[in-house]
Every structure is written in structure tokens, then in C-alpha cells.
Amino acid sequence: MIFDSTRSKERRAGLREASYILDSKSDVFAIHYSCESFNKYKSTTPRVTSVSIYNLITGEQRCFSIHLEAQIRSFDCDKLSSVELDASERSLLQKFFKFVKAHQGCLWVHWNMKNSKYGFDALSFRYKFLMQRSAPNVKMQYRYDLYVLLKKLYGPNFETNEYESKLLALTQRNCLAIRGMMIGIQEADAFDRKEFQAVMESSQGKSEAIGLIVKAAGEKTLKVNASLRDIYGISPLGLILYVADNFVRISKLWKITIGVVGVIFSMWKFIY
């Protein structure tokens, strides 16, 4: 189409995807997990330390954490051995994948959980490594990467890398009342210092932030760093999309402008 552009096509695809997520008849979960440092182990996937799930519909959260499982087993969290860590992680993953199995067909919104280094495949690998059997699968068609979705909606410059995390920067920009969020390496360091509660709270905060951000994006109320050109591109269709997205605001501005012009015209007639 001569009046179309790549940017307009990407944004329309993003809007359809966001609408599908928010209009889903099934439960929609935002998910984030924390793990040990990728530099700690050279020959295996890092240990999973917590998994947090946020329900976009109800706002309820579920969190599976190593230190909670350790406490259930009466382990000393200040002196967890490798065997005890394995047992606690095994229990964490058992409960998480039991939740997954009970919610087949639901949608999962995540942030860059896209490969075997960090993602659903990494979680499945840790489960198989510890349990010696395959984990229940979250099918690809039910996974939605919020990072990719935001690039479709607003372009690659949707946020700065302030705080070394676009997710944290978006949370700050939109004044989301979420505390305790850390970047991945900080979570790993906190776990090594046995600050388990802080790690869990960071994971919980991120899953909630992901849920709130995807809702705001779908409702077209999300504040981003991108310019209008980044978002809509340069094309007649881009202009139409901008007007459609901002029709109420433009209408109000137009009414104010007409009112001001009317006042000025009346004053001019009175004076002259």
C-alpha cells in the first residue's frame, strides 16, 4: 500500500496482539524469575532461585522461592548446603510446573524469557536436570514477550536503558508503586548474600510491573520515551493512527483553540 509504512504495519500488529492478550477468555499471567549468576556456573544452567506469577485479571500473585521451600523442610537458610539447595529448588520447580499443568491454554506475558539461557526452556532444563523427567510445556503460541510487543507498538527506542534495565525505567516513568526491583546481577548477588526475601520481592515486583505495563500498553495509556515519529513513522496512515489513538485529546484541544479564536475575534470586533 502506497500510504502504508513498515512502522505502521508493526504498530497495527502490536495493537492486535495487545488486544488479544487483554481480551483473552483464559487467565493471563505475567511471569518473571530470578536465578544465580550466569558467570557462576560454566557448564550448566544457573540455579532458579524464585519464580513469580501475576494474574492480570485478579491482581493475585503466586511466588515459588528456594528459601520458602527450605523453611518448609526446616533447613537452616543461613547454611544451605548444595544438597539442600537442590532439594529446595526441586520443590520450587515441582510446584511451579504443577501450576503450569493446571493452567494449560492460559497466556503468559514475560520479559525476554526467550531461550535456553534465560527463559521457559531454561526452567524446563532445570526441572529435567533435578527431576530426571520432562516438565509440562508452555507452548510457544501462549508465550508473549512484552519487550518484543513494546518494540512493535513504539519502536526500538520505547525506553532508555537507565537503571541498566528498560523494565525498571518504564516502571519509574509510569510512576508504578512497586519497590524492591533489582536488575538480574543484583538479584544474583543478593542471593549469594542470603538476602532471600529481597530476591523474592524483586521477582514479585517485576512480574507485577510486566502485568501493569502490558495493560497500560493495551489501553494506550503507557508513557514511553519514544517520539511520535518513532511510534507512528512517516506516512499518511501513520497520521491516521495518531489521530485515532489521540482523538479525544485532539478534540478537546480543537474545542479550546476554537474558543480562544472566538474570544480574540470578539475582542477585535469590540475594539475596532
Rank of each mutant, 00 (worst) to 15 (best):
I178R: 03
A198F: 10
K194I: 02
S202E: 05
F196A: 11
E187V: 00
I178F: 05
K194A: 12
E208A: 12
K206E: 06
A209S: 03
F191D: 08
I185N: 09
M181N: 11
A177P: 05
E187I: 00
S202F: 11
A198K: 12
M200P: 00
D192F: 01
V199M: 02
G180M: 04
I185G: 00
R179P: 04
Q186S: 06
A188M: 02
I183V: 15
M200L: 14
K206R: 09
K206G: 05
F196K: 10
D189T: 09
Q197S: 12
Q204C: 15
I178A: 10
R179Y: 13
F196M: 11
R179I: 11
G205W: 03
E195M: 09
A209Y: 03
E187W: 00
M181D: 05
F191H: 09
V199S: 03
I178H: 02
S202N: 03
A188H: 00
E195K: 14
F196Y: 15
G205S: 05
D189Q: 15
K194G: 03
E208Q: 15
R193G: 04
D192L: 13
Q186E: 15
R193A: 13
Q204N: 15
D192T: 01
R179N: 14
M181S: 10
G205T: 05
I178D: 07
F196H: 14
Q197G: 10
E201A: 09
A188E: 00
V199K: 01
A188P: 01
F191T: 05
F196G: 13
G180Q: 06
S202W: 08
G184Q: 10
F191R: 03
E187K: 00
K194F: 08
G205F: 05
A177K: 12
K206Y: 10
D189M: 13
E208Y: 01
S202H: 06
F191M: 08
F196T: 07
V199E: 06
S202C: 07
K194M: 10
I183W: 06
E195G: 01
A188N: 01
E187R: 00
D192A: 12
K194S: 05
M200V: 12
S207Q: 09
G180N: 10
V199C: 06
A190Y: 07
E201Q: 14
F196W: 15
G184L: 08
G205V: 03
A209G: 02
Q197E: 14
S203W: 03
S203P: 02
A177V: 13
G180P: 00
F191Q: 07
E195C: 07
F196D: 13
Q186W: 06
A198R: 14
R193P: 01
R193Q: 14
S203R: 05
E201T: 09
E195D: 12
E201N: 15
E195R: 10
D192S: 09
R179K: 14
G180R: 10
G180H: 12
G184N: 11
S203F: 02
K206I: 07
M200R: 13
G205A: 02
M182I: 03
M181T: 12
G184M: 08
E208S: 11
S202D: 13
E195S: 08
A209Q: 02
R193D: 13
S203M: 06
K206D: 05
A177M: 11
I178T: 06
A188Y: 00
D189L: 09
I183M: 06
